[in-house]
């Protein structure tokens, strides 16, 4: 795997994504959730909300990096809260 030029931060990033995906898969296999409507303007499953939360988090990070010189960790902390909000009430 050396050819992939791994770094510790990217390894942690992918490990977190993998854990989220595996947990979501096991959760949905065990107890499939119904599609519902919350804060978001469309009906979503938990998988949809995870995708929306992750994609919007990526865009928030790009905005942060493009517009400020502050450390991206602040935006990461905000995005964790955002992801929880979308998953719970989205």
């Amino acid at each position: 795997m050396n050819w992939m030029y791994w770094t510790v931060p990217t390894a942690i990033f992918f490990a977190v994504i993998a854990v989220i995906l595996i947990s979501m898969t096991l959760w949905q296999v065990a107890a499939p959730s119904p599609e519902r409507r919350g804060l978001l303007p469309l009906s979503t499953t938990p998988g949809d909300r995870l995708f929306i939360g992750l994609l919007s988090s990526a865009y928030f990070h790009l905005l942060w990096l493009g517009l400020t010189d502050l450390h991206p960790g602040w935006m990461t902390a905000f995005c964790i809260l955002w992801l929880i909000t979308v998953m719970r009430w989205g």
């Binding site: 992939m4 030029y5 770094t7 990217t10 992918f14 990096l65």
Partner: peptide
């Protein structure tokens, strides 16, 4: 995933690389 790994590094040649964080994105 390899592209993500590349994106946080400055790769000068196959054996020389430096971690630069989010600098390329900025």
């Amino acid at each position: 995933m390899t592209v993500v790994n590349y994106s946080v590094q400055d790769i000068l040649d196959p054996y020389t690389r430096f971690f630069v964080g989010t600098e390329w994105f900025r």
